[in-house]
Amino acid sequence: MMPKLIKKIEFDKTISKWFKSYDVIAPVSSKEGIHFKRIKDPKEIKLDGNQNSIYPPKNVFLPQSEVLFTVKNDNYEMPDQAPRKRIVFGMRPCDARAVWLLDTIFNKADDLDLYWGKRREKALIISVGCASMCSNGFCDTVGSGPFGKDGSDILITELDDAYFVDPLTSAGEALIKSLPEADDTQGKNAKLIQKGSVIKEHQAADLPRIREKLYEAFNTSIWKDVSESCLGCGVCTYLCPTCFCFDIVDEIDRSERVRNWDTCMFRVYSAEASGHNPRPTKAERTRQRIMHKFAYWVDNEAASGCTGCGRCISQCPVNLDIREMVQEITSLKIQ
């Protein structure tokens, strides 16, 4: 597929053209930092260096709260939640990879989640690579990278005066058909930027070994040690681009059945009606989170469930660092 080019001076014009047939969702600046939002003007877009949003863009496909159906006069009505085609512009490769990973959960051919599926088929993901890695990111160690291609329809590399646009799927190619083609020098420059983005000291994580070690440590007390300072809030999981647990509740006053995000870090998540809680303390809950990311995902999809975006590290109120936790657990010597 031929790579194309958007000159920086023509950027606004190019994006504006999409408004006719698409809703464009892009990073804009907001009170808490960068936030993904539907834009009405290309000037709102904020693509500063390697800064990513605090709130993960997984909510484009799996909103934090979504109505599954409404009951009206004994009829069930499923709302049309994605009436228009959408372009998600400016996702970072870590988040795009997360969507690709979540497709293995929600978008299976024989087991499709209708709500996810509808949103997903009507959306194109245009991700923007990071010329330098963000300070807490470790995407290059968990199977992706600052220019990882998983999940994106189009990958953009920022050059000095233009954006180098690399279509990865046929849908992506169709969208940028009318753009001018990039020449060889620009192609080379883009390659250079992509190569220079990785941090040399970072080593790829040995996932099978981590998985094995985690299973070995399953019944040890190390989980209590690493989770001691955990507060039990939902920051790490709600901000995680691949966490997808949800809870379905009936909002009786609205006659709606709603699906909300939920998190394994809450005590009530696993509490049973009898009062018994199979994960009674923070240790078990933290174990679930780490095991899910680095063992169960590896079991099921041979990929780590962590895309290395670093949100849980930078936003955790007590600075629990998933890198350090995994390190500590895997270096544990079990007799």
Binding site: P63, R254, V258
Partner: peptide, 11 residues
């Protein structure tokens, strides 16, 4: 009671 979820900040 009249809030709709779609089009919200998080939607």
């Amino acid at each position: 009671m009249k809030d709709e979820i779609i089009g919200q900040y998080h939607g």
